[in-house]
């Protein structure tokens, strides 16, 4: 059978499934809550975005400089420690981090942001280090040889050439962050998770979908936006072949 046809049919089936889900859930009035309680919805949405934006921002401004620092020759030894801690940290489930933050800092917005921040640090740090380390040593030698200062090598060679993996790390972090923020309800951090957990407890489809679908769309939207930003930031001379897994 024609391979293109198989592919097309499968795409069509998936598309139909998604569409019929939306048709069914709309027809059942499961999103009415968003309109009826628009104020509450907007409040939770903003809270959600606030949590994610704040924690991601803090993670980016800390993890990238940290990654730069541990890739300097002086800190070679620290690099091993940082990378292993980052790898180990990423093995720990997000719910556990959130729970640990809560037992330490109590409940509320702060422990939620702190947990999200901690959890986003790791992929960004890991990708920054991996990205800078994967740069061809010949490039650095050439840059040094024609008279770039160490700062110029960092800004004009290392960071631009590691931009793709760094951006991929940020994307991974933000997407995970949006999902983990949906658990923040558990530690009293608010966000759209409020409605999802209410829905679970009350077995109420309206709450479930009015919470879950916006969170999903938010994650997909963030993913797409950051991919678009990647295209703008990463030089056209670099094809995204960097195989840092996300």
């Amino acid at each position: 059978m024609n391979k293109r046809l198989v592919s097309f049919v499968i795409k069509l089936i998936l598309f139909t499934l998604v569409m019929s889900f939306f048709a069914w859930s709309f027809k059942s009035g499961y999103y009415q809550l968003i309109i009826d309680d628009a104020e509450g919805f907007i409040f939770l949405l903003i809270q959600h975005i606030h949590m994610v934006a704040l924690s991601s921002f803090l993670a980016i401004v800390l993890a990238i400089p940290m990654g730069i620092l541990v890739t300097r020759p002086k800190f070679q030894k620290l690099q091993w420690l940082f990378m292993n801690t980052a790898n180990l940290g990423q093995t720990i489930p997000s719910l556990a981090i959130l729970a640990l933050a809560m037992t330490w800092m109590g409940i509320g917005f702060k422990p939620a942001v702190f947990a999200l921040f901690l959890y986003s640090l790791l992929p960004i740090l890991r990708n920054t280090v991996a990205g800078i380390k994967s740069i061809d040593p010949d490039l650095l030698d050439a840059a040094k040889g024609i008279g770039y200062t160490p700062a110029q090598i960092l800004l004009k060679i290392e960071l631009p050439n590691a931009a793709y993996p760094i951006m991929a790390g940020i994307r991974t972090a933000v997407v995970i962050n949006i999902g983990t923020a949906a658990l923040a309800y558990l530690v009293g951090g608010g966000g759209l998770g409020d409605w999802i957990f209410t829905g679970i407890m009350m077995r109420d489809n309206s709450y479930l979908l009015s919470g879950a679908i916006p969170v999903t769309l938010l994650a997909l939207l963030a993913d797409q936006l950051i991919r678009a930003a990647e295209k703008l930031i990463v030089s056209k001379g670099l094809r995204p072949s960097a195989a840092v897994s996300d």
Binding site: A142, G237, L238
Partner: peptide, 9 residues
């Protein structure tokens, strides 16, 4: 240098 060391970015 041998592998030209052109900056890909």
């Amino acid at each position: 240098i041998q592998h030209n060391g052109l900056f890909p970015n």
